[in-house]
Design a protein around this nucleic acid. Sequence first.
DNA 1: AATAGCACTCATGGCCTGCGAGTGCTAACA
DNA 2: TGTTAGCACTCGCAGGCCATGAGTGCTATT
Lengths: 348, 348
Amino acid sequence: MTSDAACDAELTERQQKTLELIIQNYVRTGYPISSKSLVEIMGVSSATIRNDMGVLEAAGLIASPHTSAGRIPTEQGYRYYVQHLQSGNYLSSVERLTIAHQFHQAPLDMDQWMRLAAAILSRMSESASLVTAPRSEIAQFKHLELISTQGRTILMVLILQNGDIRQRMLTLAEPLSQETLTETAARLTRMATGLTATQIRARLTGLSTLEQEVLEIVIELMGEAERPQIYRDGLTGLLDRFNNESSGAEQALRVLEEQSALEILINEAPSIGDVRVVIAGEGRWEDISLLSIILGRYGVAGYATGTLGVLGPVRMRYGRAISTVRFMSSLMSNLMFNIYGEDVTSST
Amino acid sequence: MTSDAACDAELTERQQKTLELIIQNYVRTGYPISSKSLVEIMGVSSATIRNDMGVLEAAGLIASPHTSAGRIPTEQGYRYYVQHLQSGNYLSSVERLTIAHQFHQAPLDMDQWMRLAAAILSRMSESASLVTAPRSEIAQFKHLELISTQGRTILMVLILQNGDIRQRMLTLAEPLSQETLTETAARLTRMATGLTATQIRARLTGLSTLEQEVLEIVIELMGEAERPQIYRDGLTGLLDRFNNESSGAEQALRVLEEQSALEILINEAPSIGDVRVVIAGEGRWEDISLLSIILGRYGVAGYATGTLGVLGPVRMRYGRAISTVRFMSSLMSNLMFNIYGEDVTSST
DNA sequence: AATAGCACTCATGGCCTGCGAGTGCTAACA
DNA sequence: TGTTAGCACTCGCAGGCCATGAGTGCTATT
């Protein structure tokens, strides 16, 4: 493939500047950029710019939709831009403070935080956003509660070390009193605290039928069977940005609605602190060929991490979007650390 | 307004049949219906049909987009159709059985049920769907759990009579042991079981600072402050149905994404067993002027109820959609009754 | 290496026109 | 009185044509 070649192509200072301007203007306006329109900013004549454009086109970084039109960036062009040209911080300190303030004002509620994070991400990046609650790779038992709702149906509430709550209803063979249930739950909690699913499975023997039955479900709930809830926001704004060509919007919707598609994407999230940029699916994902996605991870490494990111048209303000994702992951990581900090240090 | 007049207009048998055919054909094809195309089905000449069409047009039930085009239904026409013509059951018994089977196969998990309900609704009605978990109008305390996550931060888990689970993190003034927390939670649970928020508030006096602090949050969580989670599905399919005219799709997205807009709509849900049909916003809701919405309520009356419905283009298969909503509400009501049935009888 | 000039390309939008689908009306008919 | 056949009329739509102008590539020049 020529992609690597293109990314490593040697460009003069001025050519890079030209590419940058083409991308920035195109992202803003959506129309092809002509050589003439860059004359004033570049300080050279249109003919010179045209020559440079020729070089950029030969390198596969820009293209013209037809003969008598200006140039638009190719996917390669965007990648070069993101890798070499775009850098620095596109969020003002006022914006940062405002965001942090919103989080400290909100109640200490994970659900609210996730919603808020998704809302801020989409608003700041002018794209759709997605956030998953922090999950630990290895789920550890923390607390079990059994509550009778009616005669034979009981409600199981399982709390994991990282604060995840999972619930399941269960129908017993025969009705049991709340006292019995509470006692059973306390016994199982004492027995299983801190254990992983496999460790619990190893200790199933010698327990009563009820206890075994309950623990089987505990193990199931601790496994990956539970699909993570994904918080989304900013879909509406995305529609506006796709104005005419609705195929991109359709693709975005399809991906954002399909839980399984999102889960695949989320697995692409980098490690904490890094940011992953996937432009136009990079040829690997057909179903986001018209979209770009920027992913980050937050949380406490090795303990519990979550994913956050934005998803927008290929023609996107990468600088701002990347800055937003980066800032939000560090902010969320700090929040997590404040909540789970001491647990982490004591359990490692 | 002429709307009521139009709905009560006296039409001959044949004119009703004509209206019905126009709507059914238009809903299917999306193109205006000509008099000629109805000749074979109606068994009379096109001139006769044209005369009847004239009557229908005078009554405001149909209209022609321009001189040389066929007729399309007006909003009034759809309303007449839904009120007078459409009735009966548009779901085969096979479909009904399949749906019921899917529910009985799924695990006893409210979250899964909601997702499944939304998925089925949207698939059967070929529209977007929305479902809210059952909520009781008057929240009643059932169980409280306090779990220490790290030194001063604890996790509150509140379970209500109807099975709702609400959580909140809380930072204490000083760290407390898990034993103390468990004991406190047990004491508060004993004290508050079965009470409403206001009843709990009346018994705040004479408690320790910690207990008061916890109960304050319990009261807050029991209040309506907590926004209901709304399950949605079928957005993608809706986009397809709006093919060219994207303004309708945009409206749909805007409504479905905006939590507050949905909450307003959900309040329009009828009582259990009824179905409410709102066509093109009925002039009351600007923001769904291009959409129709069909709402139902399910659950156990006076105990806990939820809302479900579908949202699609005005040009929608009302018969099928209404049947689907009606069937799903009764199915979900039955499921709820099986879970909470005995509680209901014992608490009333 | 940068620039001025020029010929060339081609998408876009306006204008015109013929076609045909579908109607409304009138007169004949059962 | 309700139904039908016939006919004139309307008007959206698709296709063809053309002028326009934006923007380029190339070449000669500084």
